[in-house]
Design a protein around this nucleic acid. Structure first.
Lengths: 184, 184
DNA sequence: CCGATATTTCAGTACTTACAGAAATTAGCG
DNA sequence: CGCTAATTTCTGTAAGTACTGAAATATCGG
């Protein structure tokens, strides 16, 4: 497949960002290619288009599957696996956030919990104890909040995002008239 | 400086997470050590405690300064630079989010903008054009939202976080009675 | 069940990044 | 202005990661 100029730019940029996003260049490029192609591609076609080894594509596809970003599909009369990525950016966004949370956030919450529950915890300096507790408390609030936001319908979430900082007015109002927050 | 068991666990864990957070092990360990110590440390003390080369600490401290996570302080009668990290977890959180946004998010927003404005953009498949535009639109909404949230006072932000998914009730109510969202 | 095609695994190599130790530079102090 | 302590920069090496090409395995059609 020949990429048109903007598609090529997109794929190359996605690849460059990969390292800051925690995946390698090829993985990010494969993802970008599938996203821009808008139809399922087979490994051979991906390898040719990106100019990387077939085996490298195989590994990258597996990695993308671990991220829940792609799925295998089959076309009638074609034995080859084809790979499809969601073209819904909301879905993409939510999957990435969910995965990164579980890789970059949850492990630390767990360790901090273990730290505070350890019999050795009381032997630490008072200040250190306090900072660990505060860190854990903030992370737990953020974790719960993120899970709840991820569970909302995209339209609802979008409304909240677009409201932006004006949200504070609603929160302030809710405080004055507690009934306003309803029950969940 | 001898680390007590929980502090050691904390520092080692922070170091292990470093790679998923986009910094190397030593950088994350130095940060963890300063955070847990709760007082400014000089490079020599850091190197000894962590068991790494003095020069490595120097590079790591520079990196942490690039992240706006530490600052140099001086003690009376001591020529050496001492390094202090904010012990306020809210500050830490906001700095990290701000920095990661500017490294992992903003560059892509810029490239996508350039893509859509390129004269070659119209030559792409209609579907590809649409997906790039949608991606850009979502990222711009998220970007604005994040900047606004980062600008709020911690107490306000905390209230919003604690409200969690119940926020949608306020948003729904605001829609029914538009005055409720006030003006900003 | 055989042959052809598709896919995965593996071993070696190239590339990148992290690190130590030495050398060079900077900054205070007498 | 020279001496000493502190810090940074530099160079080589080690460790880690990504990638290729080949070999092994699996899958499907006939």
């Amino acid at each position: 497949m020949e990429l048109k100029p903007v598609a090529e730019r997109f794929v190359l940029h996605w690849g460059e960002m990969g390292s800051t996003w925690g995946v390698n260049r090829t993985v990010a490029q494969v993802h970008a290619l599938l996203f821009i192609a808008g139809r399922p591609l087979h490994a051979e076609e991906i390898a040719e288009t990106l100019g990387v080894a077939r085996s490298n594509v195989s590994m990258s596809l597996r990695e993308l599957q671990n991220w829940n970003l792609i799925r295998v599909v089959h076309l009638l009369g074609d034995r080859r696996d084809h790979f499809d990525v969601t073209s819904d950016v909301w879905n993409l966004f939510r999957t990435v956030v969910r995965e990164r949370k579980s890789r970059e956030f949850n492990p630390t919450v767990n360790v901090l919990r273990e730290c505070t529950q350890s019999p050795d915890f009381s032997r630490e300096d008072a200040g250190a104890q306090a900072r660990i507790k505060e860190t854990l408390a903030l992370m737990e609030v953020l974790s719960t909040w993120a899970d709840e936001m991820l569970a909302l319908k995209p339209e609802t979430l979008m409304k909240i995002l677009k409201l932006g900082a004006r949200i504070q007015n609603l929160v302030a109002k809710a405080k004055r008239t507690p009934k306003a927050d309803g029950a969940s």
